[in-house]
């Protein structure tokens, strides 16, 4: 058999191409992207609202104000009730499971697309990078919207409980009361919510995308959802 020209190595694509392809993909499947993003938004909104609500409660309690409704009967010495901790942990779990699930579904239904891209010459790393970019953007925007919705919800609840006092003692920035636990402040809670949403979305999407990209294209294209 004749030896033809040796097979060269596939080149890496410039980052801007990946960015362009992933944004185009998000734009065209806008409806589907919105649903996935909504999953992230809901998870983070729940978490941030519970968390912020707790921050508000602690801040107002520190200031000596008391809820007109809550009497803080369960409040521990540290200022956070076990019920609140329980709520935050639960909302965190709901958030993690919800986001991981919606990202996993969004990637699994695209296995065929991954296989096809590999047929056309995409490197495994390129496929993963596309999903990383897409999910990072979805995660951040979804989480930011969710965090704002959650904060708004907590503020409305706070208004109901504490009236306008809320705004005088609003725990916007981190604070360290003399004899109380460190307070993160609402801004940090929002920021943590955004980072958490983005990290969860990226992990939830890149891990299955990486697994799909490692498969031989024939197998990826065979996968039925």
């Amino acid at each position: 058999m004749q030896q033809r020209t040796p097979i060269e190595e596939q080149i890496d694509l410039p980052f801007i191409e990946s960015l362009r392809i992933s944004f185009q993909s998000l734009k065209i499947r806008f409806g589907r992207s919105i649903i996935t993003t909504a999953g992230i938004t809901l998870g983070i909104a729940f978490l941030v609202s519970v968390w912020t609500n707790n921050e508000i409660g602690v801040a107002l309690q520190e200031s000596g104000r008391q809820s007109t409704i809550n009497t803080f009967e369960e409040t521990t010495e540290q200022g956070i009730s076990t019920k609140d901790i329980w709520l935050i942990v639960m909302s965190l779990i709901v958030c993690v499971v919800g986001i991981a699930n919606s990202m996993l579904m969004a990637v699994t239904e695209r296995f065929r697309e991954i296989g096809t891209m590999k047929c056309l010459g995409a490197l495994d790393g390129f496929v993963v990078r596309l999903f990383l970019l897409e999910s990072g953007f979805q995660g951040f925007s979804g989480a930011l919207i969710g965090a704002l919705i959650g904060t708004l919800g907590a503020v409305l609840l706070g208004l109901k409980d504490y009236g306008l006092d809320l705004f005088f003692y609003f725990p916007l920035l981190p604070a360290q009361p003399e004899n109380g636990p460190m307070q993160l402040g609402v801004i940090i809670v929002i920021l943590l919510g955004c980072i958490l949403g983005m990290i969860l979305a990226v992990i939830g999407s890149s891990f299955p995308a990486w697994r799909a990209a490692k498969l031989p294209p024939a197998e990826a294209m065979r996968t039925e959802v």
């Binding site: 097979i7 993909s25 995409a122």
Partner: peptide, 28 residues
């Protein structure tokens, strides 16, 4: 004996695939 990069280049340059179910990317 080809590396991953060589296989990707092979699929990209040497072969054109046509499938029963077309396998077009719906978003493009």
């Amino acid at each position: 004996q080809l590396s991953q990069r060589q296989i990707a280049a092979f699929r990209c340059h040497r072969v054109g695939y046509i499938f029963q179910s077309y396998n077009l990317l719906h978003v493009r």
